[in-house]
């Protein structure tokens, strides 16, 4: 269990490194994931293409968009944390019960041993 935790921490660290290094490596990059750039790329290949459909609703601002992305992320995180957390609690409880049973069992054999003498 301890080894697994260490392993998880190492992997988490690698993920952090993977996410942070781009800022040092691609200093000139704009870090956009922008739809406009996408349209531009396709326009380059086919200048006559007409975008024939548009999103039904677009977030009114970048703030609202990031809000909705955060909602999406935190909803998911909440579900995962709840499931893992409750499972962890159940596991701890089971371990406690087994431990208590063993203790009781030990005490019982001790008393019966004392009675026998």
């Amino acid at each position: 269990m301890k080894k697994k935790t260490k392993q998880n921490l190492i992997m988490l660290l690698i993920v952090l490194v993977l996410v942070i290094t781009p800022f040092f490596v691609a200093k000139g990059g704009s870090f956009a994931g922008s739809d406009d750039e996408g349209t531009a790329q396709i326009k380059k290949n086919d200048p006559h293409y007409k975008v024939w459909a548009h999103p039904l609703w677009t977030p009114p601002s970048a703030e609202i968009e990031s809000l909705l992305f955060t909602v999406q992320g935190s909803l998911g995180t909440g579900v995962i944390a709840y499931i893992l957390g409750s499972a962890h609690g159940r596991k701890k409880e089971r371990e406690r019960q087994i431990h208590a049973q063993n203790e009781a069992g030990k005490a019982h054999t001790e008393t019966s041993a004392a009675n026998g003498r």
Partner: peptide, 24 residues
């Protein structure tokens, strides 16, 4: 549910990449 939530979380994370752009 956990697997669905995992997809939910990861596809909401727009991460920077070494090419100087973001993707998820």
């Amino acid at each position: 549910a956990l697997c669905g939530a995992f997809v939910f979380v990861l596809s909401s994370l727009k991460l920077p990449s070494v090419t100087g752009s973001c993707s998820h």
